[in-house]
Computed example of a mutant assay.
Amino acid sequence: MIKKQAFDPSTKRVFAHRGMSQLAPENTLAAFHKVKESGVHWLETDLDLTADGQIVILHDESIDRTTDKKGAIHELTLAEVETADAGSWFGSEFTGQRIPTLPQLIDLINADGLNVNFELKPYLGGDERATTLIEGFAKELKRVSPQSQVIVSSFNATMLKQFKALSPDTPTAMLFKRTQSKQDWAAIATDTGSKIIHPDVRGLTRARVEKLKKAGFELNVWTVNSLKAAYHLFDWGVDGVFTDISHRFPEAYKRQ
């Protein structure tokens, strides 16, 4: 029997999901800076647009869950967003953390030498403002250091194609939920110009992973909060995992 060759952990990506979100409040500069402190090289984060057209870092459609204020992000101005405390809910030592702007995050990425996956959220403010988000993002992205790797992902194929038209050399990834398991992921990703697929870990099978890898796609799986599950996925051939526990991965996995 031929023994299967073990994978090289240093070739696998470990993405700190919303920054180091178990050590600091998610999607804050504190959480992003702890990525470097923890020896991890990739972070994942989310983009959205304020009422006055400023790009900020936020996962939810509103600021209710992660700040001491309330309101839909697309109905609030940047000045209003900047009054919200985005850290005290996590711990008193993070009191005063704010929802970062995209320029602030890019400054941190450049200073800390990090790689990043930006997710373009499906925008509730309408198609015109979604275009404003994409155009502003593509312009600001030019400030990222050439030493940093960037992936841009989205569940929204239209937004991904719009971005790809503005930044054709930036790698893009199509996100898929478990409920989309019957769709032709390869065809959809190809239509957006993407060579990377980001599938939901739930319901993902080894056979599908092997088929997509054989077709030439890279796969980064979300959200994998078990080291054992991550090892199984890497053994299947996936290239990376998005996780809230990136700080717990052995050093060998943090080198990529």
Score class of each variant (00 low, 15 high):
Met1Gln: 08
Met1Trp: 08
Lys3Ile: 12
Gln5His: 10
Gln5Cys: 01
Ala6Met: 08
Arg13Tyr: 13
Ala16Lys: 11
Ala16His: 12
His17Trp: 14
Met20Leu: 15
Gln22Met: 13
Thr28Ile: 09
Ala30Phe: 11
Gly39Val: 04
Trp42Cys: 06
Leu43Tyr: 06
Glu44Tyr: 12
Glu44Val: 11
Thr45Leu: 15
Asp46Lys: 07
Leu47Asn: 04
Leu49Ser: 03
Ala51Asn: 04
Asp52Gly: 04
Ile57Tyr: 07
Leu58Thr: 06
Leu58His: 10
Glu61Lys: 14
Ser62Tyr: 07
Thr67Ala: 08
Asp68Gly: 07
Asp68Ile: 09
Gly71Met: 06
Gly71Ala: 04
Ala72Ile: 00
Glu75Thr: 10
Glu75Ile: 00
Thr77Cys: 05
Thr83Asn: 06
Ala84Tyr: 11
Ala84Pro: 07
Phe90Ile: 05
Gln97Glu: 15
Gln97Asp: 15
Gln97Tyr: 06
Leu102Met: 08
Pro103Ala: 10
Ile106Pro: 04
Asp107Asn: 09
Asp107Glu: 15
Leu108Pro: 02
Asn110Glu: 06
Glu128Val: 12
Glu128Pro: 01
Ala130Phe: 10
Ala130Ile: 02
Ala130Glu: 15
Ala130Asp: 14
Lys139Ala: 12
Lys139Glu: 13
Glu140Ala: 15
Lys142Ala: 14
Lys142Ile: 00
Gln149Cys: 01
Asn156Ser: 14
Asn156Met: 08
Thr158Glu: 14
Met159Ser: 15
Met159Trp: 14
Leu160Ile: 04
Leu160Tyr: 05
Lys161Trp: 00
Gln162Pro: 00
Phe163Ile: 05
Lys164Pro: 00
Ala165Ile: 01
Pro168Gln: 10
Thr170Ser: 04
Thr170Arg: 05
Met174Tyr: 03
Lys177Ser: 13
Gln183Asp: 14
Asp184Ser: 11
Ala187Trp: 02
Ile188His: 00
Asp191Phe: 02
Thr192Gln: 07
Ile197Cys: 06
Arg202Pro: 00
Leu204Thr: 03
Arg206Asp: 08
Arg208Met: 10
Ala215Cys: 01
Gly216Tyr: 09
Phe217Leu: 04
Trp222Pro: 03
Trp222Ile: 07
Lys228Gln: 13
Lys228Ile: 09
Ala229Ser: 14
Ala229His: 12
Tyr231Ser: 05
Val238Trp: 06
Val238Leu: 06
Thr243Pro: 12
Asp244Pro: 04
Asp244Arg: 01
His247Pro: 00
His247Ile: 00
Pro250Asn: 10
Tyr253Lys: 07
Lys254Thr: 02
